[in-house]
Design a protein around this nucleic acid. Structure first.
Lengths: 239, 239
DNA sequence: CGTTCGATTGAGCTTTCTCAAGCACAGTGG
DNA sequence: CCACTGTGCTTGAGAAAGCTCAATCGAACG
């Protein structure tokens, strides 16, 4: 198993105060009756994570499934020499760790203070076995993620640095923007590793976007989109 | 809708001689009883495609689902200015066009002579609704594809040209290699658009791999892997 | 008020791309 | 049977986007 040197995350404690999940943050709540939802909640165990804390590493046994209930997580994969690719950011309602393999193919860590709800796989599988609508919901979630992953392939394979950053801002604005303000809780290096760039290039491009008045930085983690139209067309690759 | 100028594929005829599918090439045959499989076969309609012929374009209404029964298909997305990203190659047994959206997000074309089995979505959905094991099978297929897509993100975001080509050869060797010989029915430009490179770079890297005796070209579309170990470690990023 | 850690900016370098020419092979018609 | 032509592959030379390394900046915190 890989265990990169510059890895400051601590392992997840195996036992943890178990206080159930907040139903509102479970993605599947929409397809479950109140009783069933209650049953489902009780299968899980809430876990708090602080910034950079690891939920699991690549190669770990896939013994639990998670839903994000608070904050943000990132999943990534690391090559032998330390090169890292962030494959996604996960928000409340997202499933994490639903692998068909015995081992996790990717690592998952918290971005800022976060909370997840953990389900032992056997209990989780047992539950969805008995709840058809949830099976379908999981399938739809996987398919959506797949389309998202394919969009990301286009970005990584064919877009310029500026188009990548524009796409990223537009994506986050759609997922967690309040009006024209986008929260960026992750580090520049996380963005860089998500976009297949270096943190320096991300920094330079953000500066360029500021200079051309498409965005403004309220704070380092609070970006305001000033010209959504131009940012959109940049993101689409016809800017 | 995008319709790039240099696009020589012809549209799929709406009506076509319907002669059913070969059961052996349907991915799901493993989870269906003989009777059910027979029923399933009859829902579909076999379609032959010649090289470069389009199954559907991005933006087309998603009215049918397909399984590949012969040959190979590629799915891809094109940006406004013609830049193209191939997101995957599909072999017999693979599902294609199983979108949750009303419109296809990606285009699919044949690589060489190919054959698919087409199912109207409503009939397809109706069938899987009544066959639990198939739902599960579809979910597993989607999850596998997702992991594969994430691996591809690592490749596109963080690997060098040489590592990308090595990864590609290893991948294809695992999927359709006979011993150490890999069939490459697609064009160099398809490989390039899959790996986020130019066809010139792919050509140069292949030449370099030949020069360093890791591979040998029996014919242009028949590559023999001479040093699998070295190619593997290159592909993993620690060569 | 100093320290620390991440973000920014700069200068030079490397990898890959672009553009262009030449090559190989299959299909076609004289 | 062989030149002709078209298409895709290869190779080369110069250009460009983004990377690396290094210095500086700036906010948070003790």
């Amino acid at each position: 198993m890989l265990s990169p040197a510059n890895h400051n995350s601590s392992l997840l404690p195996d036992t943890h105060p178990c206080n159930g999940c907040d139903a509102r943050d479970l993605a599947i709540c929409g397809v479950l009756e109140t009783d069933d939802l209650d049953t489902f909640r009780r299968l899980g165990c809430s876990i708090d994570l602080c910034d950079g804390q690891s939920l699991f590493h690549q190669g770990d046994a896939a013994t639990r499934v998670f839903t994000v209930t608070l904050g943000m997580l990132k999943s990534f994969r690391i090559l032998a020499d330390g090169r890292r690719q962030v494959t996604g950011f996960h928000l409340p309602g997202d499933f994490v760790g639903t692998s068909v393999d015995q081992e996790h193919q990717f690592a998952v860590e918290a971005v800022g203070k976060s909370r997840v709800c953990a389900f032992p796989v056997n209990r989780f599988d047992g539950f969805i076995e008995e709840h058809q609508p949830m099976q379908r919901e999981l399938y739809i979630a996987a398919t959506r993620e797949l389309v998202q992953a394919q969009q990301q392939m286009v970005l990584l394979g064919r877009k310029t640095a500026m188009e990548r950053v524009a796409s990223f801002l537009v994506l986050l604005s759609d997922r967690l923007g309040h009006g024209s303000v986008v929260e960026l809780p992750m580090r520049r290096s996380d963005i860089a590793d998500y976009l297949g760039l270096t943190k320096e290039t991300v920094s330079r491009v953000v500066s360029e976007l500021k200079r051309s008045r498409m965005i403004r930085l309220r704070a380092i983690e609070r970006t305001e989109i000033l010209d959504r139209t131009r940012l959109d067309s940049l993101a689409q690759g016809d800017g």
